[in-house]
Amino acid sequence: MLAKRIIPCLDVKDGRTVKGVNFVDLRDAGDPVELAWQYSQQGADELVFLDITATHEGRKTMIDLVKSVARQVNIPFTIGGGINELKDADALLAAGADKISINSAAVRNPNLIDELAKSFGSQFVVVAVDTRLVDTQNLVHLRGGREQTDIVTEAWIKEAESRGAGEILLTSMDHDGTKNGFDVSLLSKINAAINIPLIASGGAGNEQHFVDVFQQSGVDAALAASVFHYGEILIPDLKNTLRKNHIVVRG
């Protein structure tokens, strides 16, 4: 049976991981490659790297980083951040990225999804969506949740699917950072509305939150950052808990 995926997410700036990391065995906690390797050893199913670098020079560093990860890590990984046109994606593909994730660029230019899917295949294109509840509606937000749009989240996700997205990474900004659990009701609704894989993001605080999101919303994967980086949740323990709750995970 297809296993539910656990995905640690690493923020990278100028080739270094940003958020603090609290692993015992790390020689260099700022080295994304070593961190990625550690996660692969712990049983992470996939990795996401978010490039939050602002400068052109930093972007070049990212390509080198992607190559290093592809050389040393034997699980799939996605690169997000700074992908605005085909050539950005092409460079990442050539460097060994398995998937790329686009967010604001897709909202500003939805055709980018079609172009990327046509050039590289849907399996390469993850559309990341940041959502926040405004009054009673979930609306798409840009710039890490700071900029509100008038686009309804569910409608945008369906449009992204029809344009050729191969996967959706949905982050609830209302839940992100709270450690109170994933937005199970929104994720259930979105999961039922689409026929491509859905990654849940935002709100993970303990192992039970992962059990809940898989059991109650049916998502394909769950992503988290700080709970993994600070060692609050260890992936082998998390997988044991999921297994005890009859959720299929890779051993």
Partner: peptide
């Protein structure tokens, strides 16, 4: 009736 693509780890 499953989602397409088949993406992830399977036995």
């Amino acid at each position: 009736s499953e989602k397409v693509p088949h993406m992830g780890w399977n036995t």
